[in-house]
């Protein structure tokens, strides 16, 4: 009986795998290996919503095997409201790179059954290494970072905040993205109050702009 169930399970998994293959759904490794400008199909989970604008929306997504940044995906405002963190979606679009950020553009999607919220992966030890980019777009944490300075994009609160943090005498750029976390959010206010020399733990999405440029979602005094 056990053998029969095991065989049944194997078969059903094979069928599921075949179905995915038939639909051309990629693993994250497939996605990483895909050429720029090629069509990609992935199944992933919404982690955070950056913005909705003119029937286009930008999302941070992550699956168990890796993360994706969906830039200006076709999406109505009503649908945007439905795509809450955890929602599983199948995305079809094109792999692109903009200023070092690998993303999916010109995408469409369909909502699937399932839910997943990623835990922040501690990538502090990877700062300054070539391995860090393998975690691009993931929800991550950096621990024990020292504040070098903050700078409002427009010189005053309202727009992005550029944050420079250091670790082991090396400086790194971070950003409070006002469309992800607007000036009314706790993190925007908390970052605005940081002082040079503060030692903090940071969480955010490992975005890239001419190098690593994490979009911060929370800060707290280092444990």
């Amino acid at each position: 009986m056990k053998k029969f169930i095991a065989a049944l399970l194997t078969l059903s998994m094979l069928f599921a795998g075949c179905a995915a293959l038939a639909e051309g759904i990629m693993t994250h490794a497939d996605y990483v290996a895909a050429e720029l400008d090629s069509e990609v199909v992935v199944e992933t989970y919404v982690q955070a919503k950056q913005s909705w604008w003119d029937n286009k929306a930008t999302f941070y997504c992550q699956s168990e095997d890796g993360a994706y940044f969906l830039y200006e995906m076709a999406c109505s405002e009503e649908e945007f409201a439905k795509l809450v963190p955890g929602t599983k979606i199948r995305v079809t679009g094109y792999k692109a790179e903009w200023a070092g950020e690998v993303e999916i553009v010109d995408a469409t999607y369909e909502i699937l059954e399932g839910s997943f919220i990623a835990e922040a992966a501690d990538v502090t030890a990877l700062l300054g290494t070539d391995e860090l980019i393998a975690h691009q777009n993931e929800f991550v944490t950096f621990k024990g970072m020292t504040v070098v300075g903050i700078e409002y994009k427009n010189g005053e609160p309202g727009d992005d905040i550029y944050v420079t943090l250091s670790k082991n005498d090396q400086e790194y750029s971070f950003c409070v993205e006002r469309y992800l976390t607007d000036p009314e959010t706790e993190v925007y206010k908390a970052v605005g109050e940081l002082k040079a020399g503060d030692v903090i733990d940071v969480e955010g999405y490992l975005y890239w702009y001419e190098g690593v440029n994490t979009h911060i979602t929370s800060v707290k005094a280092a444990a």
């Binding site: 790179e97 903009w98 200023a99």
Partner: peptide
């Protein structure tokens, strides 16, 4: 729009 800022 496809690549990034020309200056960079």
């Amino acid at each position: 729009k496809i690549s990034s800022y020309p200056a960079n």
